[in-house]
Design a protein around this nucleic acid. Sequence first.
DNA 1: TCTAAAAAAGATGTTTTTATCTTCATTTCC
DNA 2: GGAAATGAAGATAAAAACATCTTTTTTAGA
Lengths: 148, 148
Amino acid sequence: MLSNAAKYAIRSILYLAMYTDRKKKIRVKKIAEELSTPQPFLAKILQKLTKSKLVSSTKGPNGGFYLSEANKQNSIWDIIENIDGTVKFEECFLGLKKCEDANPCPVHYIAVPFRKQILLDFKDKTIIEFSKEIELSGSVLSLKKIDI
Amino acid sequence: MLSNAAKYAIRSILYLAMYTDRKKKIRVKKIAEELSTPQPFLAKILQKLTKSKLVSSTKGPNGGFYLSEANKQNSIWDIIENIDGTVKFEECFLGLKKCEDANPCPVHYIAVPFRKQILLDFKDKTIIEFSKEIELSGSVLSLKKIDI
DNA sequence: TCTAAAAAAGATGTTTTTATCTTCATTTCC
DNA sequence: GGAAATGAAGATAAAAACATCTTTTTTAGA
C-alpha cells in the first residue's frame, strides 16, 4: 500500500513530533538509528520533506531536523501525498480505469468503504494530535525498543 | 496494494469463470484484448497460474485457457497468495516488525479492521460465486466495454 | 504424417523503487 | 577567519516489478 519511503517518512515525522521543536533538533543519523531505517535513504526522504515544508532543518553543528509548530499542524495524508502521491488510494482495486458506484468492479463494494475510512482518519487528524495519542497510549514507534 | 500481476490475474480468472469451461477455451490474445492488459505479460501470469492449478489450459489448435469446475472452487485469496504472496496483507501498515494489539503502531487500529474484512471476503467466496454475482449485478470486468 | 495453432519455457530488456556514495553549501564555535 | 559538523544535491548502483521477444513443445486436424 505505502512505499517504504512513505512509511519511513510517516514514522520519522511522528518521531520528530514527539521529540523535537525549534530549539531541539535531531540528526539524520540518530533518527535512522532509532527507527532502524537505512540512513542515506532516509536522508533523501527528509530532504524532500524539508523542501515541501513538512519538516524543518538547519545545517551545521547542532543542526538537524525538527518539526516547527506549523509542521505539526499537517496531517498524515499530507505526508503520503508528498511522497507517494494519492493515486494508489484513489484507483480501482483491480486497476480498472473506470470503476465507480454506478459501474463497479467485482470487489468495488469491498474496497471502497475502507478507502473512505482510512482517508478520513489520515486527513482529519494533525500530526500533533497523533503524537499526543501515541504518548498517551504508548504506541510503538521505534523498532529499537522492541525485540525483532 | 496489489501488484499489476495480481490485478491482471484476478480479472483474468473472473473472466475465464464467466466465459469458459472444459469445452470452451479462450486464447491469451483474446483475454488480453478483452481486459486491455499487456499480452506477453499476461501469458506469463497465466502460465504461473496454470502451474499452480488455479487455471487450466491446453496447447495446440483450439487450445487456450479455461477454468475447470475445480478451478472455480478456488478463492480470490488463492490467486493473491499465488501471485503476490500474503505478506502485504499481514505486515504492519507502517512497516514495523512487531505490531500487534498489545503493541500497536500509531495507525494500527485504523488499518487492522479493514484487513480483517477484506481477508474474510476474499477467502470466503469462491470464484464461481463471485462470477455469478458479477453476472447478476452487471459489474464491470472488461475495460473494452467502457470508454477510457 | 505434415502443418499450423496454441501454450510453455527461457532469455532479455525497461522502468521504478530502494539505496548508497561523493561532493558541495551552510552554520557554529573557537 | 578556519575547522568541524551538519544537511543539500547530484551521481551512481542494486533489486524488484513490469514487460517483451524468441525458441520449444504439444496438439488438432487436413
